[in-house]
Design a binder for these strands. Structure first.
Lengths: 407, 407
DNA sequence: GTGAGTTTGTTGTTTGAATTGACAATTTAC
DNA sequence: GTAAATTGTCAATTCAAACAACAAACTCAC
């Protein structure tokens, strides 16, 4: 065999166990998206036999991932079907290490944020300190969990480029981190499986699971915060790239300008569409999302409105480029990009249409994101949840909180 | 159930038949990539049992997709393993409807082009005429096929945007076609399964299967012909987008210029990196690939070299953008883009590095394409071949050429 | 209220793809 | 020539999904 052409993981064959795991995975995935489904609905969605669904659900019940309940209300003729729901006793920790503060949340399998804790970050936050803070908050929340709660892992959202497979933060400009092994360190402290990814990519996952993009499977997502980040979902799967750095949509060069963005690249979308300029023309020192949006939508200043128009035009080019490249079903604008969108939707769409191919633009919708406060909590929790969905029986190795739950 | 959240195809469960088909598919896919493998190699690559591989190969042999032969030469200790190869009796037709001519080829499962036929296109080629010409050439070649040859379908490369699922050419600027149902028409005439896609996307597939990108599974491909087209492979799978228009990488706006490209978009990569300008500064009226490359590499004209530099700088920006977006393992430059790359590789790489993120650029290689003459023959044939790989047992429904083959 | 019709859950049986174990075949190494 | 190693083959086993038959629980028409 030519040793330069090695067979990859996808060349593996499948046996009966893989078949079973796949079907378990399919059921868990459906329940995660839909919350509660009847066994009859699972049967028709999966195309599997009644008996098989019955067995699969029984196994998931034994694993503690789902529970069954009687259907309430009328459902039509015939024997009412048993309802299957995600267990509330299975949770993931979500960590968002942002510039100003670290937030940790407890999220259940339905994407509900059960608890949250926040601690401000010190200046010059080092990776070690960041991991320590995250772990402290995890310990704090873990103590409050009901006895018998099963923890499937920790998902971490980082404002920077992440080597996903190894859990290494390759470069986080906000903290000036280079090659910080955040994942392995937090794993060692917390003794839990840790998954890390870029914050914007996780925002995209959140909108797909619980937000504006639930209906879609080909999604381009742009988030405007300090900088501009992005996420992409293709055929239901997150775009990660060879090493996990993909979907840096803010760093696409769209003009000849030599204005720098936060990573030092010139003429990029992030260099043209920027929150700091919005604050400046609005005369604001600082503002949260809602305050900024209110100011944008209410200002009468011509200077400010002119700046909005400039930024909207640049955003239109950025969106057009991404539509030409990805031909998505939907483009989600989040953060202050959603505010710009609301300020002058027509202008944005006109600019977008001017710069994208007719065919690609005709079936795409551009809409604002829906999630705000819990965006990154939900997004980060998706990482361990997706891992659970891919291999449901792995849950039997996960730790259980001390104490005994009433059965 | 919320009817706005319908379960999709990927929510289907799997049964034993799907399991079998998947394993057959895995074996065929390996053989397509590697040509010939021993049963022992198949066993270790797939992780399946010896007995299972034996059964799978026997079934594929019965389907006529593979054949077995004794291993030649020494292979080490132990009983020598039986070699398994792709059958030479199974072929696909490849159609390339280009501006000046239509080319049809016969390609076997190993990606070898067995025969080729070409006919110039008349001016103002209509879709009906194009289909007629393609079908004539198919009939011509079909008559020459050895008796007993099995035909799995037709793959068509079109210079334009294609609604892949429906086989409709949405827009082909070279022919001024709009919504031409090329696929259904050719299917009706030829009575064969027809698959259509954009030519650059198929060039990408070809380089992945038989060319420079064989080793990689995350690939960005740029082709410079009349215009600039692109193709993307993510984790071994072609990027198609929601309707099939994805990877229009030439139409990404990279500057403030208002120069139009062939689709009327301004400031795009295609508007800046253009063959016609190269020909002009070189004083050429027309040239094939090799002539153009020779002229580029040998000219002493300062005006020409200055134009090359301008185009290379634009190409550097384009490549940087794509690396930021996709984080691929490799970027393949094909057509005259490969010639520009060869003209001044350092300048291109320097420009690319200036405009891409450090992390994303550090593990990517930029290389020229390797396939030339048969690029689109191989690429187009990949469409029916991929369909066969996905569902190997479907071959039993495929037509056989008349006559009886010696068994 | 009753019975017909409909849909779902359950139980026991069947099916078939992959695996296992035992043994034969064929090579290399000494 | 014999031992060790690797591969092919056959019979038996395993087990996830499907199937068939029946029971359970509902709606609807009367």
């Amino acid at each position: 065999m030519q040793n330069s052409l090695l067979p990859t993981e996808s060349d593996r064959g499948r046996n009966r166990e893989d078949l079973r795991e796949h079907n378990l995975s399919t059921v868990v995935g459906l329940l995660h998206r839909f919350g509660t489904l009847s066994r009859a609905q699972l049967t028709s969605s999966t195309g599997l036999n009644r008996t098989t669904i019955s067995n699969l659900v029984a196994e998931l019940k034994a694993l503690g991932i789902v529970f069954e309940s009687q259907s309430v209300g009328t459902t039509g003729v015939g024997r009412p079907s048993v309802m299957v729901s995600m267990s509330g006793d299975v949770v993931a920790f979500a960590v968002n290490t942002a510039f100003d503060a670290t937030t940790v949340g407890v999220v259940n399998l339905l994407g509900q944020v059960l608890m949250k804790a926040r601690r401000p970050n010190p200046a010059n936050l080092s990776p070690v300190m960041a991991v320590q803070i995250a772990n402290d908050l995890i310990i704090h929340l873990r103590a409050k969990l009901a006895p018998g709660t099963r923890i499937i892992g920790v998902g971490v959202a980082i404002p920077g480029q992440v080597k996903v497979a190894e859990g290494i933060v390759r470069f986080a400009p906000a903290f000036k981190w280079i090659n910080a092994p955040f994942g392995p360190m937090l794993n060692k402290l917390s003794n839990l499986p840790v998954f890390i990814d870029n914050d914007a990519s996780l925002g995209c996952l959140a909108e797909r699971t619980m937000g504006s993009a639930r209906k879609y499977k080909d999604i381009v997502y742009l988030f405007g915060g300090t900088g501009v980040g992005g996420g992409v979902v293709i055929d239901g799967k997150q775009l990660r790239g060879a090493t996990g750095y993909a979907s840096e949509l803010g760093h696409v060069r769209i003009s000849d300008s030599d204005v720098e963005d936060h990573s030092g690249l010139v003429g990029t979308l992030e260099s043209a569409v920027r929150r700091d300029n919005l604050l400046k023309v609005l005369g604001l020192k600082a503002a949260n999302e809602d305050e900024l949006e209110a100011a944008i939508l209410s200002t009468e200043s011509q200077e400010a409105r002119s700046e909005f128009h400039t930024q909207i035009d640049a955003l239109g080019v950025g969106v057009a480029n991404l539509v030409n490249i990805f031909n998505p079903q939907v483009v989600i604008l989040s953060g202050f990009l959603a505010s710009l969108f609301k300020f002058d939707q027509e202008r944005l769409l006109a600019g977008f249409q001017m710069h994208s191919l007719v065919a690609s633009q005709e079936e795409v919708v551009v809409i604002p994101g829906r999630l705000n406060a819990n965006l990154l909590m939900i997004g980060a929790s998706e990482l361990p949840i997706q891992a659970l969905i891919e291999a449901p029986s792995s849950i039997s190795h996960m730790p259980l909180t001390k104490g005994r739950k009433k059965s």
